[in-house]
Each structure stands twice: as C-alpha cells, then as structure tokens.
C-alpha cells in the first residue's frame, strides 16, 4: 500500500431540519483522499461544499454514511473527542484569517498548542517559530495582527495551521479576501507545502484555483458531479512572476 488514506468518505448524507422542511445538503458523497494530495473542492453556493468542509473538519458529523480521518471514524465521536481530533490532526485556514486581535504572530501561531497539554512551553515556542519560518515570516514574529497586511495575516494563519503538524490542512476560501498578487503568493505557499508532502483540501468557488491543485472535486446539489486529477498543474510562483511588476 505505502500511501495511506487521510480522508475516506463513504456515502455521506447530511440533512438539516429547518422548521418543518428537511434540507438535504449532502446526498451520498463518497471519495478518498490519499496522503500528499492537494485537492480543491469546488461548487457554487448551495452545492453543499460548506457542509462538506464542516464534516471534513470534524466540526460536524454526517447524518448517515461514514467519515474516516486518518482511518479514525468520526461519525460517532462526541464534541470533546472531535475537538481533540481537530487539535491533533487538522490545520484550519479561513477566508478571514481569524487571528486574535492585538496578539503577536508568534502568540497566534502558538494558540493550537495551548490546547495540547503534552506540549511544553518551550516546545510550543520552538514549533511556532519553525512554522513561522516555513511561511517566510521569521522577521515578523512580534508583529501584532493589526500591524500586518492581509497576505501576511494569512501566512500567520497558515503557520498556525501547520504548528500542530496536522495530517490535513483544510483551507476555506483561503484566498477569498486577497488581491490577485497576494492570492498567488498564498497559493505558491500551499504548493510549497504540497511539495513537502502535506495533504491539503482547499474549498473554493473560484475555478482558477483548481488549476494549481493536483485534483479537483466538483459538487452540485449535494452530489459529486466531477472528480478528476490534474495532469497539468500550474505553478503559482510562475504565475506570480509573469504578472506585471507592481507600481511604486
């Protein structure tokens, strides 16, 4: 076998009861993501991608079907066990960064480790510095979130997602708040992490991003309508270099 399954989704349904109506957000979704894949999950709003993201992120559990994260069944887990699972296995990157205000980059990156009692204070700082180094922010460790640009803030958020050495990085429209140039920078960073062997799931409605990933899953009305590997992965770094130079 060699390469293990990070995500295994088997005929997952997720229904929400809103008033007297039942909304079927996911209607039988199955797929497997192996270690080292960079998968984009696309779909328009209402396609069920947010619901799928919440399930993959262990923030929610399926109504029926099975979800295995790193071969651990999540469906029957209670809130506390899923919290611990998120803490150990998942790194989240959000559209709006979600950094703590008035808090330095270092402290923001350290945050997940605060909820892991087995990590000592010195190990915490060491890991956080290494994560900040990995996203190229070694010179910004003591900057507060409000002193940084959007791109820098998103890098801090990515460092925070890396700090617990997760099996899965889950990005939710991670370039949604950024301009084209900065988006490329962030995508280049994701590609670098991918190249280093990280497993990344990037949920987006922007079709352009699919060209930078290794695989693209498309959702519509709660079902997968397309799932294909990308033979022609574009380099975000090259796309960045091809852009006209910034004025002033």
């Amino acid at each position: 076998m060699g390469i293990s399954n990070i995500i295994r989704v088997e005929d997952v349904h997720r229904h929400f009861v809103v008033g007297e109506e039942t909304v079927r957000a996911l209607r039988g979704v199955s797929f497997t993501i192996k270690e080292g894949e960079f998968v984009t999950i696309m779909g328009s709003s209402g396609s069920g991608k947010s619901t799928l993201l919440n399930l993959l992120g262990c923030l929610d559990t399926p109504t029926s079907g099975e979800y295995y994260l790193d071969e651990i069944s999540v469906r029957t887990m209670d809130g506390n066990r899923r919290a611990t699972l998120r803490n150990r296995k998942i790194g989240f990157v959000f559209q709006s960064y979600n950094l703590l205000p008035k808090t330095t980059a270092l402290e923001n990156v350290e945050l997940p480790l605060f909820y892991n009692p087995s990590v000592s204070a010195s190990a915490r700082k060491h890991k956080a510095l290494a994560a900040l180094d990995a996203v190229g922010l070694s010179d910004r460790i003591n900057h507060r979130s409000n002193q940084m640009s959007g791109g820098q803030q998103q890098r801090v958020a990515i460092a925070r997602a890396l700090v617990n050495d997760p099996v899965l990085i889950l990005a939710d429209e991670a370039t949604g708040n950024l301009d084209t140039r900065t988006s490329y920078e962030i995508l280049a960073l994701f590609q670098k992490l991918h190249a280093e062997g990280r497993t990344i799931v990037f949920v987006t409605h922007n079709p352009e991003i699919a060209s930078f990933s290794s695989r693209n899953i498309v959702l519509k009305d709660g079902r997968i309508i397309d799932d294909r590997y990308n033979d022609n992965i574009q380099s975000a770094a090259e796309a960045l270099a091809a852009m006209p130079p910034e004025e002033d």
Binding site: G79, A83, N87, R88, N98, Y115
Partner: peptide
C-alpha cells in the same frame, strides 16, 4: 474568537 478556538481544538 470562540469559534476559532473551538476549531483548533478547544473543548467547550
């Protein structure tokens, strides 16, 4: 912030 803390592993 509470949502973030929960998503990165804080128990309720």
């Amino acid at each position: 912030e509470i949502g973030l803390r929960m998503s990165i592993g804080a128990k309720s």
